[in-house]
Computed example of a mutant assay.
Amino acid sequence: MLIGAIAQLSGFSRDTIRYYERIGLLGLPRKARRENNYKEYTPAILSRLRAIKELKAIGYTLHEIQQVIESYEVGGLDCVTGKEQVLGKVRLIDEQIRQLQITKRQLLEAVAGCPDHCKIIAILDQTLMQNG
């Protein structure tokens, strides 16, 4: 398959596929070129792209996907290890949510006194006027 066909079948753009190749996610062999120098994509590459899409859909980053695929390919990924990784990611998400809730609360407090008192302007007046 050429890149246009694999892009259509995978749902990724040509640029995304090329990017995944550059960062090593696809592992395309060097001899995957035709005589006219076009790359030949195998059904295995399509399967990998579909796996990448599904892992992205459940929240994995490209770096995490690469690690998971590499672990899987060398037989180092089992259900217990996978569960530990997922639970670690859930803990990270919980922390990010906590941080976002703090930021949200601070932003709401910043506009609570509007229009009589703008905390943003007060911060700028206090900090910029000291240096000005």
Score class of each variant (00 low, 15 high):
M1L: 07
A5C: 04
I6A: 06
S10P: 15
G11K: 03
D15L: 07
T16M: 15
Y19E: 10
L25V: 04
L26Y: 04
P29I: 03
A32P: 01
R33Y: 09
R34W: 02
R34V: 14
N37E: 15
K39Q: 13
K39Y: 06
K39V: 04
E40F: 06
I45G: 04
I45R: 02
I45V: 08
L46I: 10
L49Y: 10
L49A: 10
L55D: 00
A57P: 02
G59A: 10
G59M: 03
H63W: 06
I69N: 09
I69K: 09
S71R: 05
Y72E: 15
Y72F: 14
G75W: 03
L77Q: 01
L77R: 04
C79W: 02
V80I: 08
T81H: 13
T81D: 01
G82S: 12
G82A: 12
E84W: 05
E84Q: 09
L87Y: 14
V90Q: 10
L92H: 07
D94F: 15
D94C: 07
I97T: 11
I102Q: 14
L108V: 03
A110K: 06
V111K: 12
A112R: 09
A112S: 05
D116I: 00
C118Y: 01
I123Y: 12
D125H: 14
Q126P: 00
Q126F: 13
L128R: 05
G132L: 15
